[in-house]
Deep mutational scan, measured.
Amino acid sequence: GKELVLALYDYQEKSPREVTMKKGDILTLLNSTNKDWWKVEVNDRQGFVPAAYVKKL
């Protein structure tokens, strides 16, 4: 099944490779191999968020 993460904080994208999320959002985790930036999918968009801003559910 898909792995989900919870947004712990708001995050505003700073580049086209990133995505914006709001605290409390549930996101689909696509890739967590990089310890600093995790790739997630939110609202049919894929991009990176800081790993410290999310936690695995």
Rank of each mutant, 00 (worst) to 15 (best):
V5D: 01
E3G: 10
K23C: 08
M21V: 09
V19E: 00
K56E: 06
L8Y: 04
K23M: 08
F48N: 04
Q46C: 10
L30F: 04
P50K: 04
K23S: 07
Y53W: 07
L4D: 04
P50W: 03
P16C: 09
P50Q: 02
E13S: 15
D25W: 13
K56L: 14
V49I: 09
L29H: 01
L57P: 03
V19I: 15
E3W: 13
I26A: 03
S15P: 05
E13C: 13
L30Y: 04
P16H: 10
L6A: 06
W37Q: 03
N31P: 03
A7R: 01
N34Q: 10
D10S: 09
A51F: 03
Y53R: 06
K56S: 08
T20A: 07
L30G: 01
K2W: 11
E13L: 08
S32H: 09
I26W: 05
V49K: 00
E18C: 07
L29W: 02
G24F: 05
P50M: 03
G47R: 02
G47I: 04
K35C: 11
Q12E: 15
N31V: 08
V49A: 03
N34P: 05
K39R: 11
W37I: 03
A52Y: 09
V54Y: 02
G1R: 13
R17S: 13
E18L: 05
K39G: 06
S15Y: 07
T33P: 04
N31S: 13
L57Q: 04
A51V: 06
A51R: 13
V54L: 15
G24K: 02
V42Q: 15
S32G: 11
K2F: 13
R45Y: 05
Y9A: 12
K35Q: 11
P16R: 10
G24V: 00
V40T: 00
Q46Y: 07
M21N: 01
S15Q: 08
I26P: 01
F48I: 07
N34L: 09
D25G: 05
R17H: 13
V19F: 14
D25L: 05
I26R: 05
T33G: 10
K22R: 13
L6F: 09
L6M: 15
F48K: 03
N31C: 13
V54R: 01
E13D: 05
Q12M: 13
K2H: 12
K2A: 11
L57T: 06
W37G: 01
T33L: 10
F48Y: 15
K55N: 06
K14G: 08
V42H: 15
N43D: 14
E3S: 12
L8F: 04
L4T: 08
A7F: 01
L57G: 04
A7L: 02
P16T: 10
N43G: 15
G1V: 14
S15R: 09
D25M: 15
G1C: 15
K55L: 13
T20P: 06
E3C: 15
Y11R: 03
L27C: 10
V54F: 06
D36Y: 15
K14Q: 14
D44N: 13
R45G: 05
Y9I: 09
K23L: 05
K23W: 03
G24Y: 05
W37R: 03
P50S: 02
L57M: 10
N43W: 11
Y11W: 12
M21Q: 01
K22E: 06
E18N: 05
V19S: 02
E3I: 15
Y9M: 12
T20G: 08
T28F: 12
Y11M: 01
V5S: 03
E18G: 13
S15T: 12
G47E: 02
L30I: 15
I26F: 06
P50H: 02
G1E: 12
K39S: 08
L6E: 10
K56F: 11
K22D: 04
V49F: 01
V49Q: 00
K56Q: 09
Q12V: 14
K14M: 11
K56D: 04
Y53F: 13
A7S: 06
N31Q: 10
D44Q: 12
K14V: 08
D44C: 13
A51I: 03
K35N: 13
Y11A: 01
Y53M: 12
V54N: 00
G47F: 08
T28A: 10
V19Y: 04
N34E: 11
T28S: 09
P16I: 10
Y53P: 01
E18A: 07
D25S: 08
D10M: 04
K56N: 07
L8S: 03
S32W: 11
L6G: 02
V5K: 00
Y53I: 07
S15K: 07
D36G: 10
D44V: 06
K55P: 01
G24N: 06
D36P: 03
D36A: 12
Y53N: 05
D25Y: 05
D36Q: 12
E41C: 13
N31L: 10
S15F: 06
A7Q: 01
Q46P: 06
V40C: 06
T28V: 15
K35I: 10
A7Y: 01
L27Y: 11
T20D: 04
G24S: 03
L29S: 02
L30R: 04
L8I: 10
S15H: 13
T33Q: 12
Q12A: 13
K55Q: 14
K2Q: 11
E3R: 13
L8N: 02
T20L: 03
V5P: 00
K23N: 04
T20Q: 05
M21C: 06
T20S: 15
K56H: 08
V5H: 03
N43S: 10
I26D: 00
K14T: 12
D44L: 10
L27E: 00
Q12Y: 14
N34M: 09
K23P: 03
D10L: 02
R17A: 12
D10F: 05
A52L: 11
K23A: 12
M21E: 00
L4Y: 15
K56A: 08
A51C: 08
A52R: 15
E18M: 05
G1K: 14
K2E: 09
R17V: 11
Y53H: 06
E13G: 15
V19W: 05
V42I: 15
E13M: 13
V42P: 00
Y11Q: 00
F48D: 04
N43Q: 13
N34F: 08
R45N: 05
G24C: 08
L29C: 07
T33I: 09
K39C: 13
S32M: 09
E3Q: 14
D25I: 04
V49M: 02
G47T: 02
N31K: 07
P16Y: 09
K55D: 06
L4G: 03
N34W: 07
D44T: 11
K55I: 15
L30P: 00
F48S: 03
N43R: 14
L27T: 01
T28P: 15
V40G: 00
T33Y: 10
T20Y: 05
V42T: 15
D44P: 07
S32C: 12
S32P: 06
G1L: 14
T20E: 03
A52G: 11
R45E: 05
V40K: 00
K56V: 12
Y9N: 08
K56R: 14
L27P: 01
Q46I: 14
K14F: 06
P16D: 12
N34K: 07
Y11K: 01
G1W: 13
W38C: 04
Y9S: 08
V54I: 08
T20M: 04
D44A: 10
S15M: 07
K22G: 05
I26E: 03
D10V: 02
R45Q: 08
A7V: 10
T28G: 08
K2V: 13
L8T: 04
A51E: 03
D25P: 01
G24A: 03
V19P: 01
A7W: 02
G24W: 06
E13A: 15
E41G: 08
E13F: 07
I26Q: 05
G1P: 14
P16E: 12
D10N: 08
W37T: 02
Y9Q: 13
N34A: 09
S32N: 09
L29T: 01
Y11T: 01
V5A: 12
R17Q: 13
V42R: 15
L6Q: 10
W38D: 00
G47A: 04
Q12P: 06
Y11G: 00
N43C: 13
D36C: 14
D44E: 13
R17D: 12
Q12S: 11
L8C: 08
